[in-house]
Design a protein around this nucleic acid. Structure first.
Lengths: 143, 143
DNA sequence: TTCCTTGCAAAACTTTTGCATTAAA
DNA sequence: TTTAATGCAAAAGTTTTGCAAGGAA
């Protein structure tokens, strides 16, 4: 199915189903945030989402944006990234993957799982198990 | 040489040399911070360092702690980590290594380089080169 | 009605900055 | 004496929270 060709209505319906599937009541604000973030694999900050929604004419508060993003992340609808100390990045791609981080521009680029292979990994300490692996490959301008 | 058996004087001298080697003027505050942080491989926050120095009777301000830690990190004397969004962690181990992050307790544990082997890594995008690789293995309580 | 969500403003935190004072070379 | 570092308080930036008002079931 062509993603970009979907109607606004179809996107709304799709988001509504995804929220409901996670036990999240699909309110107007949550749907706006979901429609924006889940439209494609991307990394957005809370402030970017707030600005984007507002310039699109949506009525939404900063508190709701943060509440919603935290809720989405808890329910596994999005992923919260800590790549630099400056702010949180919300990743709409929840499939396992890694990241390039361009330290010059700040850009974040997905690295698909097949591009990385571990031939050796440490055993988790006794009493613990691996909850996830975050790999960030920092990039600088060459030259 | 036994690390723990060194006298306070020997530690001070050692720190002074390390700072000077990095072109950092060894002031009283910087030496206190260096002595604390570089005593062993560890991960400390700015607030922990400030509290530790003050309870040890040192006269040092929050601004100086932050200025100093940033300076040390710039000069490669310590390493700045972004493992969770909450705050910066300063790692006194600047040798290449990775981390376990216990998401229950917040604990950070070093993973030595030989414990991780990559059999496949993506090529950096054109015009960029790899500046470093940060690997964080998240741990949760098993059971 | 009852429970949940929202918005606003304020608070909480971490980190940075301006500027007068102090210390180092 | 000249330059750089420190301390303090205030500012800046991000995220959380308290609470009244609004909306859904």
């Amino acid at each position: 199915m062509d993603h970009t060709a979907r109607s606004a209505q179809a996107i709304a319906t799709h988001c509504e189903q995804r929220l409901s599937a996670c036990g999240i009541r699909p309110t107007a604000q949550r749907l706006r945030i979901a429609a924006l973030l889940l439209a494609e694999p991307q990394h957005l900050s809370a402030e970017q989402i707030l600005a984007s929604l507002r310039s699109a004419g949506a009525r939404v508060s900063k508190a709701t944006v943060y509440n919603t993003l935290n809720l989405f992340a808890e329910r596994g609808l999005i992923r919260l990234l800590s790549v630099d100390g400056s702010r949180a990045w919300f990743d709409s791609n929840v499939d396992a993957h890694y990241h390039f981080h361009d330290i010059t521009s700040g850009a974040l680029i997905d690295v698909p799982i097949p591009e990385v292979e571990f031939s050796r990994l440490p055993a988790p300490p006794p009493g613990t198990e691996v909850a996830g692996i975050d790999l960030v490959i920092r990039l600088r301008k060459k030259g």
